[in-house]
């Protein structure tokens, strides 16, 4: 049934990439608990979180907001690493 199909999709964690302007220092690793922090050459930072928990995702965005970090993009990446802009 369609119901079980949606559940299946939800069970698979999605990969979210949050790109912000500026390089974050390593001290933020503990702050952004469970999130990988990668510095890109162009001066941006990518926070990657693998989760299917929307509340966690919004919490993460709130932390970005609270630091006044300029937000560039939020992407949801499929398991096959195709980038889906949201």
């Amino acid at each position: 049934m369609s119901n079980t199909a949606t559940q299946k999709v939800d069970l698979k964690p999605r990969v979210y990439r949050i790109r912000i302007q500026g390089h974050l220092s390593h001290q933020w690793k503990i702050w952004f608990d469970g999130v990988s922090i990668v510095l890109e050459d162009d001066g941006n930072t990518v926070l990657t979180s693998e989760t299917n928990d929307q509340a966690l995702l919004y919490g993460l965005l709130k932390k970005v907001r609270d630091l006044g970090l300029p937000l560039i993009s939020v992407n949801c990446v499929d398991a096959d690493h195709k980038v889906k802009p949201i």
């Binding site: 500026g22 390089h23 220092s25 001066g43 630091l67 006044g68």
Partner: peptide, 12 residues
């Protein structure tokens, strides 16, 4: 010249 997040850099 730094790419670092303004706040990080300056606080340090």
């Amino acid at each position: 010249g730094s790419h670092r997040f303004v706040l990080d850099y300056l606080l340090e």
